[in-house]
Deep mutational scan, measured.
Amino acid sequence: ENVVSAPMPGKVLRVLVRVGDRVRVGQGLLVLEAMKMENEIPSPRDGVVKRILVKEGEIVDTGQPLIELG
C-alpha cells in the first residue's frame, strides 16, 4: 500500500512529515480534523515519504489520497 488515503472527510490541520522522511508503521503522518476532533493519521507501513498530496488547511473527502510512500 503506497498511498495513504483519508479515512473520513475533514480538514488537514498539520502535516507531520516531509518528503524524504523515513517513517515507521503507526507513526503519525498528518492530523485531520473531523467533527471538531483531531485525528492523527498513521503510516500503514515502514517506508519513505515520496510525495505529500495535500496542504495544511485543505478540505479532503473520504478516500482522497494524502501521502505517497516509497
Rank of each mutant, 00 (worst) to 15 (best):
V54A: 05
I59R: 10
N39R: 09
P7C: 01
P65M: 15
N39I: 09
L16H: 14
K36M: 10
V25P: 04
V25H: 10
L32A: 11
G47T: 12
L32R: 01
S43E: 00
R24I: 14
G10P: 00
I41C: 01
G10V: 10
E1K: 01
E33A: 02
S43Y: 02
G26R: 06
P9D: 07
P7M: 07
E1D: 07
M8E: 09
I52L: 03
M8H: 08
Q27H: 05
L53I: 07
L32S: 07
L53H: 09
V17G: 10
G63E: 09
V4C: 00
R24E: 12
R45D: 06
V12G: 01
T62A: 10
V31N: 14
N39D: 10
N2I: 07
D46I: 04
V19F: 02
V49C: 00
E33K: 13
V19Y: 06
I59G: 08
P7A: 04
K11Q: 08
M35F: 14
P42I: 15
V19W: 03
V4M: 11
V49I: 11
G63F: 15
D46P: 09
G63L: 09
G20N: 14
G63C: 00
I59Q: 04
E58V: 14
V12E: 00
P65D: 13
V25D: 15
E58W: 03
V15L: 15
P42S: 09
I52C: 00
K36V: 14
L66N: 03
A34Q: 07
E40G: 15
K50W: 05
D61Q: 04
R51W: 05
E1Y: 01
I41N: 03
S5C: 01
S5R: 02
V48E: 06
P44H: 12
V12N: 11
G26T: 08
D46R: 01
V25L: 05
T62P: 12
Q64Y: 07
G63T: 02
K50N: 12
V15P: 15
G57L: 13
P42A: 05
P9K: 05
V17T: 03
L66A: 13
R51D: 14
G20E: 12
M35S: 12
N39P: 12
R18K: 12
P42W: 14
A34C: 00
V48A: 07
V15Y: 15
R14Q: 06
E58F: 06
R14V: 11
P7H: 08
L29S: 13
L66S: 11
K50A: 08
V48W: 07
V60C: 00
L66H: 00
R18A: 06
E1I: 02
P44C: 00
G70L: 02
R14A: 14
Q27K: 10
G63Y: 13
E33T: 08
D46V: 09
P9M: 10
V25R: 14
R24S: 09
I52R: 10
L30H: 04
G20I: 04
V54G: 05
M8F: 11
R45Q: 13
E56Q: 03
V4H: 15
G28W: 07
A34E: 14
L16V: 13
I52W: 09
G26M: 11
R18E: 13
P9R: 08
E33Q: 09
Q27L: 06
M37K: 05
V31C: 00
M35Q: 06
L16S: 13
G28F: 13
M8L: 12
P44K: 15
N39F: 08
M37A: 10
S43C: 00
S43T: 15
G20K: 05
I59F: 07
E40R: 01
E56D: 11
V19E: 02
D46N: 11
E68P: 03
P7W: 10
S5K: 10
V31I: 10
P44W: 03
Q64P: 03
K50C: 01
N39A: 04
G63H: 11
K36D: 02
L29I: 12
N2V: 14
V23R: 09
M35T: 09
V12P: 00
P7N: 03
P42F: 13
R22E: 10
V23E: 05
S43H: 07
D21H: 02
D21E: 07
E1M: 00
P65W: 07
G28T: 06
D21M: 02
A34H: 08
L30S: 11
R22A: 08
K55T: 11
V60L: 05
Q64K: 08
V23Q: 06
I59A: 03
R14D: 07
R45C: 01
E68F: 03
G47M: 15
L13H: 08
S43M: 11
V25G: 06
I52N: 03
V3M: 08
P42N: 08
L32K: 05
V23S: 10
K36C: 01
E38S: 04
R45Y: 05
V60E: 01
G26C: 01
D46L: 02
K36I: 12
Q27E: 13
S43F: 12
V15F: 12
L16T: 03
K11T: 10
G28Y: 13
K11Y: 13
E40F: 03
V15I: 07
K55V: 09
D46G: 03
R22N: 06
V12I: 11
K11L: 13
E1T: 13
M37C: 01
D61M: 15
L53Y: 11
L32Q: 02
L30C: 00
L32M: 03
L53N: 10
I67E: 07
V25A: 03
V48M: 05
L53F: 10
M8T: 09
K50M: 12
V23W: 01
R24F: 10
V12Q: 01
D61L: 15
G20T: 10
M35K: 14
G10Q: 05
N2D: 14
L30Q: 02
Q27A: 07
K50G: 08
A6G: 05
R45S: 15
D21T: 02
E56I: 09
P7I: 06
